[in-house]
Design a protein around this nucleic acid. Structure first.
Lengths: 254, 254
DNA sequence: TAAATAGTGTCTCTGAGACACTATGAT
DNA sequence: ATCATAGTGTCTCAGAGACACTATTTA
């Protein structure tokens, strides 16, 4: 029963040929409408892909990633690769699955570790400059899912998207896509960008009528305690909010 | 930047020495009080451990698990090991993390894949018979966490416990610990066994006042549409319930 | 009848939902 | 004044919370 453990000797067994980490970097790209000075931007969920230059899957688009070294954890590897390939640092990476189906990688027996990160498009700004040279590009998620991605990266991306959608509704990750202080309209748009099915005509009312808001959001005030507002996107200035530190606890039992 | 991928050749790099799967098997053990014929049993969350016979960590308790083969996924490996070591089959395994800190395994570079499974104590029944011979035992979780477990298995167990606690409140996994039809008291006890902090004096009322119940539970009826009840644990018979198939959707935004 | 668990009556109060209405400020 | 977005008034109704009370069956 436990002979593998009892008699293990590294030299006697076939061992994996590598432990790559693949990173799904989501961002929301806002394209302000140029027709009017003030208007809510159009937002779109995008994912960062690289184009492979060599075998296998030469020329195809793939998730960024690379091989773990013996001296680092897979998390460290993902952090390192993310920094190397996108100059993005100080990001919360989330490990969400391993991919280990036999034959998934023509180079050999590779068990891949998939992480996802949400980064603000501002953090990707200087990266975007080097995009053409590096064969690195942001793709709208829906478009990326239609591409023939390398390896099982379409599956990984699809799984990542599901995780992000769930977390968008159940945690405060929306803040990764927002500035420190934001308006409720911005928040609503970010949620809708990630989870198109979410519709809440009374969104403002909902969050301003005590319960939910008090657990999640708080109004941003200046030094004198005056509420701060922004008219960046609208004629009428909108109250600014920030997320609280509370971790909302959810339960299906009430 | 992407040189690892571009120039990869298995023979040129140090590769992992193995990809073990470790499985955290939780069960709830009910010990009926013998003093009275009918009384709610005392329930306790327990975890299945094996005692290692050889180096490394000889004699110490560890999570069951074993090495992945080239021809299987880590999930298949976990399923196989679970079946081999505990005779438990048809279980929903959940992958929840990878453990890859350098030096975590004295045998070499091992990236471990951790799964958890919730099994009804009935499913562990015949396994329990072979327990002494195999150096396999159930431990109360609190006790297991105080043991010096092999490898980083205490961390893995601790992480698994956190995952189970969260899922107990946010999904219907309670059903893994319950018979097909159960009373609300049983359900409440199971929840409390896993999440001791959860207290809800009005639990029955809460679940019987429409909203929550209708989404999660339904009354069990016989062929004539008569509600079924059980007096297994109480003088007065209690209504039996089962979980619906609906996946409850949670949101912090209301 | 006492014990043990199951379940309800009833009250109050919050807040969800709907949707039309008002508010503000740039052009 | 008009437009675009922000936010409120007001109504209704469901249901959460509290907690004492009743119900059912066995020993």
């Amino acid at each position: 029963m436990i002979e593998n453990e009892s008699n293990y000797s590294a030299s006697r067994y076939r061992t994996p040929d590598g432990a790559p980490a693949d990173i799904v970097i989501f961002t929301i790209v806002s394209s302000g409408k140029r027709t009017k000075k003030k208007a809510l931007p159009t937002r779109e969920l995008q994912v960062l892909l690289i184009q492979r230059k060599i075998w296998p899957f030469e020329g195809q688009w793939a998730l960024p990633g690379g091989f773990t070294k013996e001296t680092e954890s897979v998390y460290d590897c993902a952090l390192r690769e993310l920094k190397e390939e996108t100059a993005v640092d100080h990001v919360k990476l989330e490990y969400f699955n391993a991919y280990s189906a036999p034959g998934r990688d023509p180079r050999g027996w590779m068990i891949s570790h998939a992480f996802l990160a949400l980064v603000n498009e501002r953090q990707l700004a200087h990266r975007a400059a080097a995009v053409d040279a590096m064969d690195v590009r942001l793709f709208p998620v829906e478009e990326a899912l239609r591409l023939e991605l390398a390896f099982d990266h379409r599956q990984i991306l699809s799984d990542a998207l599901q995780v992000v959608r769930r977390k968008m509704m159940t945690t405060k990750i929306a803040k990764e896509f927002l500035p420190e202080a934001f308006t409720l309209s911005e928040l609503y748009q970010v949620i809708r960008t990630v989870v198109p099915d979410y519709e809440e005509p009374n969104f403002i009312r909902k969050l301003t009528s005590t319960k939910s808001r008090s657990a999640i959001l708080e109004e941003v005030k200046d030094e004198k305690g005056e509420p701060l507002s922004s008219n960046q996107y609208s004629q009428r200035a909108a109250q600014l909010y920030r997320f609280t530190d509370d971790e909302p606890s959810l339960s299906i039992y009430g």
